[in-house]
């Protein structure tokens, strides 16, 4: 329940940002999705018409990874100015007195990000190809951006150090994760110049309407990274939502995504690099799944969803075993 006084304060802020002082918030409804941050749809009457916005704020507990809201908003402004498909940013408010926590507001866009719907309506090679094109266009944004800091000089090694440290801090001693990290440590790919990565580029984090791509959502994990990181993350088995045979996010064959990507970037991704970054993606998701679990177990945010997310670590481990298996291991033959 959002108090009337909160709505009134929000309306004044929206009125100032849009030059419509008569703005009135007519409805606020929490939206589904967003495993880390929370979202509300905000409907407003202003200047004789109706407009809708999305208010995004932190959850009750933090994951301990990713961009601060203010930096995420700064990135949205950069992306919007560059013509990328994002929800148009309206304002950031760092004053927790207004609604109880810092937040940012963007325009509301029509479409669905619901994985079950997107996967059920597939296969959709056109959508996957369009997503590949959008990713390639995103990668044209290169360092520096002050709010993202400097890119790591050795991206893969930096990622591994980070994930290993986080597992150690959680007291996790997982043989499969160690097996995979050992492989990643011993098989680093030739580095490529860093690009802007979405960091959570997958089905569930883009809006589509009737098969038409609308926008990329949820930029909290964005940062400088390897050009193949987002491609591999998108194709992770964990993000196919049961449609395992459609490697591109459960919506299409992997080739469709890569075709779109190559058409705009001019670079054909190397399968060996995609394998490497696919394993890195599985380690990353394993770490996030355990961090989410700990928001329930240790940080006091009681949530069955968070608790169950911890169980998904085993899915990551299966994918890791597949990706790092070498012919000489013959582990799956009896």
């Amino acid at each position: 329940m959002i108090e009337a006084s909160t709505r009134a304060r929000l309306a004044r802020l929206i009125g100032r940002a849009t030059g419509t002082p008569d703005a009135v918030v007519t409805r606020m409804e929490e939206l589904r999705g967003g495993a880390v941050r929370r979202h509300w749809r905000v409907d407003a009457a202003m200047g004789g018409s109706a407009r809708s916005f999305v208010l995004r704020t932190d959850g009750a507990t933090r994951l301990g990874m990713g961009l601060e809201l203010a930096d995420e908003f700064a990135l949205l402004e950069t992306l919007h100015a560059a013509g990328r498909a994002v929800a148009p940013p309206l304002l950031y408010c760092g004053d927790p007195a207004l609604t109880g926590a810092p937040f940012h507001l963007t325009g509301f866009l029509e479409g669905s990000a619901e994985p079950a719907l997107l996967v059920a309506s597939g296969p959709d090679e056109t959508l996957a190809e369009r997503l590949g094109q959008e990713l390639a266009a995103l990668q044209r944004i290169r360092p520096p951006l002050a709010f993202l800091g400097a890119p790591a000089s050795h991206i893969a090694a930096t990622r591994l150090d980070d994930y290993r440290s986080r597992l150690d801090a959680m007291g996790e001693r997982r043989p499969v994760a160690e097996w995979a990290m050992r492989w990643l440590l011993r098989h680093p790919p030739e580095p490529l110049p860093p690009v802007l990565c979405h960091g959570d580029f997958r089905t569930g984090n883009y809006l589509a309407e009737v098969g038409r791509f609308v926008a990329l959502l949820d930029w909290e994990f964005a940062g400088w990274g390897d050009p193949d990181e987002d491609l591999a993350w998108f194709c992770s088995r964990c993000w196919r939502f049961g449609a395992h045979e459609r490697e591109a996010g459960g919506i299409a064959p992997r080739a469709a995504l890569l075709r779109g990507y190559e058409a705009v970037s001019g670079r054909r991704p190397d399968p060996a690099r995609l394998r490497y970054w696919g394993a890195m993606a599985a380690i990353k998701w394993l770490v996030i799944a355990l961090l989410q679990r700990d928001r329930h177990l240790r940080a006091g945010e009681r949530s069955l969803d968070l608790a169950l997310t911890g169980r998904r670590a085993a899915e990551c481990e299966l994918e890791l075993l597949q990706l790092v298996e070498e012919p000489e291991d013959h582990a799956r033959s009896t």
């Binding site: 097996w179 169980r311 085993a314 899915e315 481990e317 299966l318 075993l321 291991d329 013959h330 799956r332």
Partner: peptide
């Protein structure tokens, strides 16, 4: 190493048989 790899596969499959057996679909061998 081969013995360990088999153990890791077995450990992971046992976990998934409890938590999400549908995730094992298509993993035939």
């Amino acid at each position: 190493r081969t013995r360990l790899a088999r153990l890791l596969w077995r450990l992971t499959i046992l976990k998934l048989q409890e938590s999400n057996p549908a995730f094992l679909e298509g993993i035939k061998d």
